[in-house]
C-alpha cells in the first residue's frame, strides 16, 4: 500500500515542480522579449541602430523560445504515455 502512495506522491511532486519551472521560465523569457522590444524602440528613437538591432534580436529569440515551449508543452500533453 505504501509503495503505490509513494509512487503517486512522486508523480504529483514531478508535476508540481515542472509546472513551477515551466511557468517561471515562460514568463521570464516573455518579459525579456517585452524588454527587448521596448528597448529597441528607445534605441531607434535616439538613432542607435546597432543597439536597436541587438535588442530586436533578443526579443525575436525570446518570442521564438516562448512559442517553442508552448508547442512542446502541448505535444507532451497530447502524447499517449
Amino acid at each position: 500500500m505504501s509503495l503505490p502512495i509513494a509512487s503517486a506522491g512522486a508523480t504529483i511532486l514531478k508535476v508540481a515542480y515542472s509546472s513551477v519551472l515551466a511557468s517561471v521560465a515562460v514568463s521570464v523569457v516573455f518579459a525579456l522579449a517585452v524588454l527587448g522590444l521596448s528597448r529597441a524602440s528607445e534605441m531607434r528613437r535616439v538613432n542607435r541602430q546597432a543597439a536597436a538591432g541587438a535588442y530586436t534580436l533578443m526579443a525575436v529569440c525570446s518570442l521564438g523560445i516562448c512559442a517553442a515551449a508552448v508547442i512542446w508543452g502541448l505535444i507532451l500533453v497530447g502524447q499517449k504515455s
Binding site: 511557468s23 518579459a31 517585452v34 522590444l37 521596448s38
Partner: peptide, 23 residues
C-alpha cells in the same frame, strides 16, 4: 500561487527600467 508569485517577482525585475506604456 508559487509559480505566479516567483514569475511576477522576476518579470518586474526584468522590465523594471522599461517604459510602462510599452510594457
Amino acid at each position: 500561487f508559487l509559480a505566479a508569485a516567483i514569475a511576477v517577482l522576476l518579470s518586474y525585475r526584468i522590465i523594471g527600467q522599461a517604459r510602462p506604456g510599452s510594457v
